[in-house]
């Protein structure tokens, strides 16, 4: 089945089996390996991407369902070579160890900050409850998302 998906601003058309999951379309058909694939059971959130601006666990969506949609993956966060505040946050706050959960955490974190520019630490904690990290104990991830909140906002108000 022919499918056309706009990913990070670039149109990608492929002939795929309808059963192809979005995560495999992105990673295998398009060879974009930024999006991770972890539990395969809709629990861990490593595969989180945005479809038309909303986060989706891409292991639980068929690629054909994204036909005509705008998908953003972690590779799409960089703008003109500059890191997004969420990426800066993970760098500055040491928000990762093995890095497995990181793309999903960044996609969810940036979405949370966009939804609520004044989001509290407690709300972030709840907001990332669909993203599992086995390394960090979450403290630095919360710091990183708070960093993004503070810097994404100053960007807008500047």
């Amino acid at each position: 089945m022919q499918v056309s998906v706009n990913i990070n601003g670039v149109e990608h058309s492929r002939d795929i089996e309808p059963r192809t999951l979005l995560v495999h379309f992105i990673r295998d058909d398009l060879q974009m390996r930024g999006t991770h694939w972890g539990c395969d059971t809709s629990n861990c959130g490593a595969c989180t991407v945005w479809v038309d601006g909303a986060p989706v666990k891409s292991c639980t969506m068929l690629a054909v369902q994204a036909e005509g949609a705008e998908v953003t993956t972690v590779e799409g966060l960089v703008k003109d070579g500059a890191l997004d505040p969420i990426q800066e946050g993970f760098t500055e706050c040491h928000g990762l160890q093995c890095g497995y959960c990181t793309p999903g955490m960044m996609m969810t974190g940036r979405w949370l900050v966009d939804q609520n520019p004044n989001i509290t630490r407690e709300e972030i904690r709840e907001g990332i409850s669909g993203n599992i990290c086995r390394c960090t104990g979450y403290k630095n991830i919360l710091d990183a998302i708070e960093y993004a909140r503070d810097h994404a906002n100053s960007e807008v108000s500047a």
């Binding site: 989706v56 969506m61 969810t108 907001g127 409850s129 669909g130």
Partner: peptide
Amino acid sequence: IADPIVRMR
């Protein structure tokens, strides 16, 4: 119910 990502869809 579930988590904020699952609840979006």
